[in-house]
Structure formats: structure tokens, C-alpha cells
Amino acid sequence: MLKLEGINKIFNEATPDEKIALDNIHLELKTGDFVTVIGSNGAGKSTMMNMISGALTPDLGKIEINGKDVTRLPEHKRSHFIGRVFQDPMAGTAPTMTIEENLAIAYSRNQKRTLRIGVDKKRREFFKESLETLHLNLENRLNAKVGLLSGGERQALSLLMATFTKPNILLLDEHTAALDPSRAELITNLTKQLVEKDKLTTLMVTHNMQQAIDLGNRLIMMDKGQIILEVEPSLKKDLQIDDLMLQFQHIRGEKMVSDRTLLSV
């Protein structure tokens, strides 16, 4: 479904701030795979996500979606196949527009936008049904402006908007990191439910090791622009946080240090 081949990216090349963001990344996701990505700050996780979404172009390497080379395809064309949820709960929705208008925008993701009215009766019914699955009572607030919703509600809505057109690939970029623990848990459960329902091929970046272990069938660990550890489905089931810490120490010869990683344990 998704294939990254030899992806390289350097920021600020030939300056004192030069940074190798991605160093020869190879990764393949089969249809229905749910891969969680962990790694400390600056490991290249977000850069990799931006490569896949098309916000950044790799210096070297090739990206394939569904067997099609999309390396040069601009972001807005690639998002036909890709659903995304960002870390910032404000980023995934349009605040001055209503809930149903936001859903209508998401609804026309994989078709050409025309002069058809965005929210008609039939769609409104569908939006209502979809919102009911969130159990946040949003289905009764279709005409509320999204800017009035809480961060958790907005993130739940973003998640629904990213998934309800069944994208080929779902990218989740630390989408629970900016929420308080109880809201984060709600979004985590919702993620699990929505991904399982449509067997979406998913790539999720997280700082929370427990979340990385609990969700998905595969796990990868990144450090300094490289994938340093891949845990396959058969081993992932019995994985513990301590195993990951030990593995990291073993590979890098140093202790895993990241405030946020430790805090999230």
C-alpha cells in the first residue's frame, strides 16, 4: 500500500545548521497494517510524515502509494489518498465554519469539488450517523461553529473527518499529545475503533510508549533520521516498555533520554 525507498532529506545543507533529517529510510506498509512510530525529539518522525503527505519533497528516494509513484505529486493531490490528523487540535478543522460544513469539506476529499451545495439533506443524515459513533453529542450541534468546541472534541472531529471517506493511508502525527490524559484516552480508543472498522492502513507517530505498544500490529523506532528497530506483528503482542528501553540501549550504546518519552511511560 505504502512504500518508502531510500528516502533522504537534509535541512540547511552546507551551513553550520546542517541536519540530516532522514537517512536512507526504507519502509513498507501492507494494506491494513497499523504501524506505530516512536523516537525522541528530532529523530525524523515528523519529517517522515511530511514526506508521505507531500508537505516536503525528499532529496533522494521514492514514495509509492498503491503501486503508484507519488514522489513528485503535490500535497493537495496526494491528499486524495491520505487522511491526516495533526498534533494541534486546532489544525485539522476550520474554526469559523460549522461542524456540518467541516464534514462537507472532508466529504469531498476524494472527488472533484463542484457547484453542488455542500450540505444537503442526504449528506446531513450521513454526517449525523457518523457523528453518533463519537458519542460526544456532536450530532445535535451540526450548526455550531467548530471554534466553540473543546480541544478534545475538535480532535475527535478531525479524526472522524480524516477517516470517514476511507483513505488509503491514515497519518496520525502525535494526535493525542496536546490533550489531557482522559481526553487522550478517549481519542486513543476512538482511533482504535475507527481504524479497525475500516481496516485502514495507518502510520501513527507517538511519544507515548505505552500507546505505541497498545495500538497497531507493528512498531518502528527511529533515531537520528534512521529506523533503528522494527518489531514485527508476531513479537509486538508481547512487547513491554522495558524491552524497548533495553533494545535502544543495546543498539545505540546509550540510555534513551527524552523528557517527554520518560514522562509518558
Binding site: S53, P74, E75, H76, K77, S79, H80, I82, G83, R84, F86, M90, A91, G92, T93, A94, P95, T96, M97, I105, A106, S108, R109, N110, R113, M161, A162
Partner: peptide, 13 residues
């Protein structure tokens, strides 16, 4: 309202 968002829903801003 939110250019980043609408680009992620396949619109050419």
C-alpha cells in the same frame, strides 16, 4: 480559515 487543513483535504489553495 485554515489553509493547512483544506490542503489536507485535497484542495488546491
Amino acid at each position: 480559515d485554515n489553509g493547512k487543513m483544506i490542503r489536507s483535504f485535497s484542495a488546491n489553495t
